[in-house]
Amino acid sequence: MTSSSRRVLPGFGLSLGYALVYLSLLVLIPLGGLVLKASTLTFAEFWRIATTEQAIASYRVSFGASFAAAAINAVFGTLVAWVLVRYPFPGKRLVDAFVDLPFALPTAVAGITLATLYAGNGWIGRHLEPLGVKIAYTPYGIVVALAFITLPFIVRTLQPVIEDIEPEIEEAAASLGASRWQTFAKVLFPAIFPALLTGFTLAFSRALGEFGSVIFIAGNLPMVSEITPLLIIAKLEQQDVVGATALAVVMLAISFVLLLTINALQWWAASRHKGRTA
């Protein structure tokens, strides 16, 4: 008897092979091609292209705005998920469906709409302008667009986890003398934290790659509100394919390191109560 025939679940070889081929065709081969293309540059050339002032400013805008958007949604998305799970109210299903809209809407439409609303003469921008707050055509505009795009990632990741928390857990905490805040900080938050981290990661990575909605609201001022994907497009339009791939590889590397770090954080959070699934 071979060791593989002793497995209880059938089809391991076939399904693993399929999974690897699929992953390769869709993810690994294109990304490998990207790295290969970039490797036609010498390291000195690569470094020069990747570290121009404009490029570095664009990394800062891209990663900064994505992080800010994911962080904002980590707070308010959690609130939305909580309200949708815990409280019955009229029109709840409708509100629940709204959450998915950013998934479905073409991002360019979202970008144009947000830009119109937040522009100095728009419905919302009109009231913010006198207060000295400019949203459209600034980095804040980018954050607003990204927050819009990434909301469903946080809400949809958290909903099932919040549903899983029995109200009895809160009652137990209350009967033991915990205040509302203590119940949240010591009981509820630790329970949703791993899922929140997952949602944050998804939102953050989605925001990094976002292009369509951002370019309409960002104003695209070099050094101020220009995101890296836009810089890549600009290089492509100038037929500078190698330069574009160099920037893309930098993005890829930074994203990969960040995602790996967040994943490590998740493993750590999960291992703190590894017994959960036992």
Binding site: E166, E168, I169, E171, A172, A173, A174, S175, L176, G177, A178, S179, V187, P190, A191, R272, H273, R276
Partner: peptide
């Protein structure tokens, strides 16, 4: 009186233990 001020111990049918602790 609020539940937390009653000084009452409560045991639930399904334990309601804090899973992450």
């Amino acid at each position: 009186l609020h539940a937390r001020d009653r000084n009452v111990g409560f045991v639930f049918q399904h334990y309601a233990l804090f899973r992450h602790m």
